[in-house]
Design a protein around this nucleic acid. Structure first.
Lengths: 229, 229
DNA sequence: GCATTTCCTTACGCTCGCTTTACGCCAATT
DNA sequence: AATTGGCGTAAAGCGAGCGTAAGGAAATGC
């Protein structure tokens, strides 16, 4: 990651937010903010932060629901802030898909350590390489070029964007919402339509068959995945 | 947890207590003792053990009351010892807030496995939640992929969700209600139907047999459990 | 400004997963 | 023995989601 990691804090208490901002920026990260669960979910979609810090005691939504919502389409690391002795809530948050937790009040050193640990996990996924090779596919991000078995393939901008995003997460599932918000913008987060057409065109140009795919696999109701190896 | 986990055993029978002491300490844990329900509740408060093992047949209090008392203020995992065929008592104990049960007479290996599973729950700062390995089963949450002995297994969304939730609690009992509310939503908390079909399909795809299960164990009237080891 | 490419829209058939319904089995209860 | 409830399986219906096609709008490139 060349740019400083962007951390989204979902927290209703202003003073805690202010405090976190100091801590996080002292750690060399950038902080985004949301005051409500709903808004936090949306910013996660639109801004694609590298990490989400979530307070469990939000006024509008139960923390577990926020986590579940995000986990439907994103694998971004989630660090939970819970009050001390909120044992049950903490555990259910982890079950819902959170990655770690810190109990309030927390030491700034501990918080930053947890943050770094989660970011490190994430950074193993290369995002800033200029060329992605996946089997017979070669995707040159800078030149906007795709070659299949050495032969040039002409993709449109959207088609290329879709394939590139899949390639960045080669082998992993990429959710509809993630593709749509990244490429078409948050306003079209639910237009899975677009995606089907783009995928269809890509498959066409790569000589792939939807019924028996060699490159792009459909994960029904969830998203798509680029085959590795 | 840096120190050895401390386990409180609430049991009136001296010979069983002595036996448990050997088993528990052989597992690398420390054992505290109480002979009566009342005393057990108090020691839970004063000594804050990491796990409570509770015999249901105490002379001074009914087991359900002991659990309810503890649950008023503590979320410490409670493992219940019940006599065989005490089905109803067992279920009501779980309803009252117990986490798991073992029927007497019990195998020492099984008891320790349950103890470890419950202790893991408390100390669970997941190192890498994106992949859960349980025996020959490998569940990749990010990729939405399940491999059995290295071979890919195609699960539907619901099937995957069920298996993933069981895997998060590997070795522990997961109640019907928890599975249903988490995956199907609160509205279907009583449609155990759905669950049976999903479990049936999963077992089918994993080559598991309901009558002699290797992976998913049915806990009648209560829930399911994913085998560990 | 015009030609061409690219994208959005609309439409439709189809597959597959979820729900529903039904039934047999076993064990515990009477 | 008869009954009941929980579990497991089978199978059918249905609807959501997927894939494809084609025409028109919009953006791009010259």
């Amino acid at each position: 990651m060349t740019n400083p990691p962007r951390i989204l804090v979902i927290e209703d208490d202003t003073s805690i937010r202010r405090f976190l901002k100091i801590v996080i920026e002292s750690g060399g990260h950038t902080m985004l903010e949301a005051e409500r669960g709903r808004a936090g979910i949306e910013r996660t979609a639109t801004d694609a932060p590298d990490l989400v810090i979530l307070d469990l005691g939000l006024p509008d939504m139960d923390g577990k629901s926020v986590i579940a919502s995000i986990r439907e389409w994103s694998q971004v690391p989630i660090l939970v802030l819970s009050v001390r002795d909120g044992e049950a809530e903490k555990i259910s948050a982890l079950d819902a898909g959170a990655d770690d937790y810190v109990t309030k009040p927390f030491a700034t050193g501990e918080l930053l350590a947890r943050v770094r640990a989660l970011l490190r996990k994430r950074s193993s996924i290369p995002t800033d390489v200029s060329e992605i090779v996946s089997g017979p596919l070669r995707i040159d991000l800078a030149a906007h070029k795709v070659t299949l078995n050495g032969k040039d393939t002409q993709l449109t901008r959207k088609e290329f964007a879709v394939l590139a995003l899949l390639a960045r997460h080669a082998g992993r599932l990429v959710a509809h919402k993630q593709l749509l918000t990244t490429i078409w913008g948050a306003a079209h987060a639910n237009d899975a339509h677009y995606l089907r057409i783009a995928i269809g065109n890509i498959r066409d140009k790569l000589g792939d068959d939807a019924a028996d795919p060699r490159y792009i696999i459909t994960e029904p109701g969830v998203g798509y995945r680029l085959v590795t190896e």
